[in-house]
Measured scan of single mutants.
Amino acid sequence: WIARINAAVRAYGLNYSTFINGLKKAGIELDRKILADMAVRDPQAFEQVVNKVKEALQV
């Protein structure tokens, strides 16, 4: 799951650890299995999560 998430978030200019930190700051409580599945099956929803994380990180 970690490898999938890392590959997906790198397309948005983040790395895995920064993304996970941003999830916590944004108050998003999705587990890694769901995030990895979302990255593959629903990229639009995953992009929305990434955008919320970037807002929380102020990137």
Rank of each mutant, 00 (worst) to 15 (best):
Tyr12Cys: 03
Val53Ser: 07
Val40Ile: 11
Gln44Ala: 13
Leu23Met: 10
Lys33Ala: 05
Glu47Asn: 05
Ile28Thr: 04
Lys54Gly: 03
Lys54Cys: 07
Ile20His: 04
Arg10Lys: 14
Phe46Glu: 00
Lys33Phe: 09
Ala36Glu: 01
Leu35Pro: 00
Ala7Thr: 12
Gln44Pro: 12
Arg10Cys: 11
Ile28Pro: 02
Arg41Glu: 13
Glu55Pro: 03
Lys33Asn: 04
Glu47Tyr: 05
Gln44Leu: 09
Gln44His: 13
Ala7Val: 06
Phe19Tyr: 02
Tyr16Lys: 01
Asp37Cys: 12
Tyr12Trp: 08
Asp42Cys: 08
Ala8Met: 03
Ala56Trp: 08
Gln58Val: 12
Lys54Tyr: 04
Phe46Tyr: 01
Asn51Ser: 09
Lys25Met: 11
Ser17Asp: 12
Asp37Gly: 09
Ile34His: 09
Phe46Ser: 00
Asp31Ile: 14
Phe46Trp: 08
Ala56Met: 08
Lys25Trp: 08
Phe19Cys: 01
Gln48Glu: 12
Leu57Glu: 05
Tyr12Asp: 02
Ala36Ile: 09
Ala8Arg: 03
Val53His: 00
Ile28Trp: 04
Tyr16Pro: 04
Val9Lys: 00
Asp42Leu: 14
Ala3Met: 03
Gln58Thr: 09
Thr18Arg: 13
Tyr12His: 07
Arg32Trp: 10
Asn6Val: 02
Gln48Ile: 13
Glu47Lys: 11
Gln58Leu: 11
Gln48Asp: 07
Thr18Ala: 10
Lys33Asp: 04
Ile20Leu: 06
Tyr16Cys: 05
Lys24His: 09
Ile5Ser: 00
Ala7Leu: 06
Val50Lys: 01
Gly27Ser: 09
Leu23Tyr: 06
Arg10Ser: 14
Ile28Glu: 05
Asp31Val: 15
Ile28Cys: 10
Arg4Lys: 14
Glu47Leu: 12
Leu23His: 01
Gly27Glu: 04
Ser17Arg: 10
Leu23Val: 08
Ala45Met: 12
Val40Pro: 02
Val53Thr: 04
Gln44Trp: 13
Ala3Lys: 15
Glu47Ile: 06
Val49Asp: 00
Ser17Cys: 15
Tyr12Met: 03
Ala36Asn: 02
Val49Met: 09
Val9Cys: 08
Glu47Ser: 08
Val9Leu: 12
Asn51Thr: 11
Ala26His: 03
Thr18Phe: 03
Asn15Glu: 04
Val9Tyr: 00
Gly22Phe: 03
Gly13Leu: 02
Leu35Tyr: 05
Gln58Tyr: 08
Phe46Gly: 00
Trp1Thr: 15
Asp31Pro: 12
Ala7Ile: 09
Asn6His: 03
Glu29Ala: 14
Trp1Tyr: 15
Ala39Glu: 02
Ala26Gln: 06
Asn6Gln: 05
Ala26Leu: 06
Leu14Ser: 01
Arg32Asn: 15
Ala36Arg: 02
Phe46Val: 01
Gly13Glu: 04
Pro43Thr: 11
Asn51Cys: 10
Leu57Ser: 06
Ala7Met: 10
Val49Arg: 02
Arg41Phe: 09
Ala39Leu: 08
Asn15Thr: 11
Leu57His: 05
Asp31Leu: 13
Leu14Met: 08
Leu35Phe: 06
Arg41Val: 12
Thr18Asn: 07
Tyr16Val: 04
Ala8His: 04
Lys25Phe: 09
Gly27Val: 06
Gly27Leu: 06
Ser17Phe: 15
Leu35Cys: 05
Arg10Gln: 13
Val59Ser: 14
Val49Ala: 03
Arg32Met: 15
Gly13Arg: 04
Lys33Arg: 05
Ala39Tyr: 04
Lys25Glu: 13
Gln58Met: 06
Gly27Lys: 10
Leu57Arg: 05
Val59Cys: 13
Leu23Gly: 02
Ile34Val: 08
Val50Ile: 12
Val53Pro: 00
Trp1Gly: 15
Ile34Ala: 10
Lys33Tyr: 08
Gly22Tyr: 03
Asn51Val: 11
Ala3Asn: 07
Thr18Tyr: 05
Leu23Trp: 03
Gln58Asp: 11
Gly27Ala: 09
Ala8Glu: 03
Lys25Tyr: 07
Ala36Tyr: 14
Val50Leu: 03
Ala45Trp: 12
Pro43Ser: 06
Glu29Val: 13
Ala11Val: 14
Ala3Ser: 11
Gln48Lys: 11
Asn21Ser: 14
Val40Asn: 10
Lys33His: 06
Leu14Val: 03
Asn51Trp: 13
Thr18Val: 09
Asp31Thr: 14
Lys54Met: 12
Glu29Tyr: 15
Lys24Pro: 05
Val40Asp: 13
Asp37His: 13
Tyr12Ile: 02
Val40Cys: 15
Val50Cys: 13
Trp1Leu: 15
Glu47His: 05
Ala36Thr: 03
Leu23Ser: 03
Gly13Gln: 05
Leu30Ile: 13
Arg32Leu: 15
Val59Phe: 13
Ala26Met: 05
Gly22Glu: 02
Gln44Glu: 12
Ala11Cys: 09
Asn15Met: 06
Leu35Asn: 01
Ile20Cys: 14
Leu30Asn: 08
Arg10Asp: 05
Lys54Leu: 10
Asn15Tyr: 06
Leu30Arg: 08
Ala8Pro: 00
Arg41Met: 14
Val53Lys: 00
Asn21Arg: 12
Leu23Thr: 03
Arg32Phe: 14
Gln48Val: 08
Phe19Glu: 00
Ile34Gly: 10
Gly27Asn: 12
Asp42Ser: 11
Lys54Gln: 14
Val53Asp: 00
Ile28Tyr: 10
Ala56Ile: 12
Pro43Trp: 06
Ile28Val: 09
Leu30Ala: 07
Ala11Glu: 12
Gly13Pro: 00
Asn6Trp: 03
Leu35Ala: 05
Ile20Asp: 08
Asn51Gly: 08
Asp31Trp: 08
Ala39His: 05
Asn51Tyr: 14
Val9Phe: 01
Arg4Ile: 15
Ala7His: 11
Ile34Gln: 05
Val9Pro: 00
Pro43Leu: 09
Val50Glu: 01
Gly13Lys: 04
Gly27Gln: 10
Asp31Ser: 13
Phe19Met: 03
Arg32Gln: 15
Glu29His: 13
Lys25Ile: 14
Ala26Pro: 01
Ala39Gln: 03
Tyr16Asn: 01
Ile5Gly: 00
Ala56Lys: 08
Val53Gly: 02
Val59Gly: 09
Asn21Tyr: 12
Ala8Lys: 03
Thr18Leu: 07
Ala26Asp: 01
Leu30Pro: 11
Glu29Cys: 14
Gln44Thr: 06
Val49Ser: 02
Phe46Met: 04
Lys25Leu: 11
Ala36Trp: 14
Ala39Val: 06
Arg4Thr: 15
Glu55Met: 08
Arg10Trp: 05
Val49Ile: 11
Tyr12Arg: 05
Phe46Leu: 03
Ala11Gly: 12
Ile28Phe: 07
Glu29Pro: 14
Asp37Arg: 09
Trp1Gln: 15
Phe19Gly: 00
Leu14Pro: 00
Val9Asn: 00
Gly22Met: 03
Asp31Arg: 13
Gly13Ser: 04
Leu14Gly: 01
Ile28Leu: 09
Ala45Tyr: 12
Ile34Met: 11
Gln48Phe: 12
Phe19Gln: 00
Gly22Pro: 01
Ala3Val: 05
Gly27Trp: 06
Leu14Ile: 07
Asp37Thr: 13
Ala56Gln: 10
Pro43Asn: 06
Ala45Asn: 11
Arg10Asn: 11
Phe19Lys: 00
Leu30Trp: 06
Leu57Lys: 04
Lys33Val: 05
Ala11Tyr: 06
Asp42Gln: 10
Asp31Gln: 14
Val40Gln: 10
Lys54Phe: 10
Arg4Tyr: 04
Ile34Phe: 11
Arg41Gln: 14
Tyr12Ser: 02
Phe46Ile: 02
Gln44Tyr: 07
Gln48Trp: 10
Glu55Trp: 07
Asp42Thr: 11
Ala56Val: 08
Arg4Phe: 09
Ala11Phe: 05
Gln58Pro: 07
Lys24Gly: 08
Lys24Val: 11
Arg10Gly: 12
Lys24Gln: 07
Gln58Asn: 09
Asp37Tyr: 09
Asp42Val: 10
Arg41Ala: 13
Gln58Glu: 12
Leu35Trp: 04
Lys25Arg: 08
Ala7Pro: 01
Glu55Gln: 12
Lys24Cys: 15
Val9Glu: 00
Lys52Arg: 14
Lys33Pro: 10
Gly22Cys: 04
Val50Trp: 01
Asp37Pro: 02
Ala7Lys: 14
Ile2Gly: 01
Ala7Asn: 13
Ala45His: 10
Val49His: 04
Ala8Asn: 02
Ile5Val: 04
Arg41Ser: 08
Leu14Phe: 06
Asp31Ala: 15
Trp1Phe: 14
Asn21Lys: 09
Ile28Ser: 05
Lys52Ile: 15
Pro43Gly: 06
Ile34Leu: 13
Lys24Phe: 09
Phe19Pro: 00
Leu14Thr: 01
Val49Gly: 00
Pro43Phe: 11
